[in-house]
């Protein structure tokens, strides 16, 4: 049989701008860039920490510049987008969740996941700010010597 001649249309480089579903996808993926950069900021801080107090204070002074605070504000917004979208995708990696014979809607998973994230966040904030309830504070002190959190 003769080979059928076909025309293959090239994929335009801006394909992801042509459909709202693709734009939302790319925004979700963009959160990864901010986590990557944030991890590098922390690694840089760790390096400063290992070099002594002067280097570490230099790193902290840099964090206090308006540009770095602005970066972290944008990063926090993308991290929030990541939290929500992560729990939207997570149930797709497991067999269909059923509770009492009924399919658990994705929205319920998102509410539980974001709720868990909020609870952990509240705990970490309270720990760092030194406002944990006495019982919890005692338990944390047994795990981590006094001095603060990362």
């Amino acid at each position: 049989m003769a080979e059928v001649r076909t025309y293959r249309r090239p994929m335009p480089a801006d394909w992801w701008t042509r459909n709202p579903s693709y734009v939302v996808y790319m925004l979700r993926e963009a959160s990864a860039v901010f986590f990557f950069l944030y991890a590098l900021v922390l690694l840089w801080g760790l390096n400063a920490l290992s070099q002594g107090e002067a280097a570490f204070d230099g790193w902290r002074a840099l964090l206090a510049t308006p540009a770095m605070i602005a970066f972290h504000a944008v990063a926090a917004a993308f991290a929030l987008l990541h939290t929500v979208t992560w729990f939207m995708v997570l149930p797709k990696t497991a067999p269909t969740l059923r509770l009492g014979g009924r399919i658990v809607p994705v929205a319920a998973v998102v509410v539980v996941g974001v709720g868990a994230s909020a609870a952990i966040s509240a705990f970490i904030y309270a720990w760092v700010a030194g406002i944990l309830p006495p019982g919890l504070a005692e338990a944390v002190r047994n795990l981590v010597p006094p001095g603060g959190a990362s």
């Binding site: 986590f35 944030y38 926090a76 939290t83 966040s121 760092v128 990362s150």
Partner: peptide
């Protein structure tokens, strides 16, 4: 998963 659970709070604490 780690980022979804603690990403926002860590960035807000250490960065802001």
């Amino acid at each position: 998963t780690l980022a979804a659970l603690v990403g926002v709070v860590l960035i807000v604490i250490t960065g802001i």
